[in-house]
Amino acid sequence: MNIFENTLLIAFFVLGICLLLAAIRFAMGPSLLDRITAFDLIVANVIGIIVIYSKLTVDAELIDVALILSLFGFLGSISFTYYMLRR
C-alpha cells in the first residue's frame, strides 16, 4: 500500500514538472505551430494527471473525463492546423 501511494505521489510531482516545461515552451515558442505541439503535450499530461487523480480519490467516473479529453485534444489540434493551412 505504501509503495503504491508513494509511486502515485512521485508521478504527480514529475507530471507537474512536465507541465511546467511545456508551459515554458508554450510561452517562448518561435512560431504558432510550436505552441500547438506544446498544447498537445499539455493535453497528454492532463490526461495522465486525471487518471492518477481518479485513483487517489477513489472516483471511477473521472476516467470518462480522460476519455473525452483524449478525443477533444485531437480535435483541437486538427482544427487549428486546418485553420492555419487555409489562411
Partner: peptide, 19 residues
C-alpha cells in the same frame, strides 16, 4: 507502479525534448 513509473519517465523525456 512499475508501469506508471515507466510512463512518467517517457513523459519527462518528451517534455525535456520539447524544451
Amino acid at each position: 507502479s512499475v508501469l506508471i513509473l515507466m510512463g512518467v519517465f517517457f513523459m519527462l523525456v518528451a517534455a525535456i525534448g520539447l524544451l
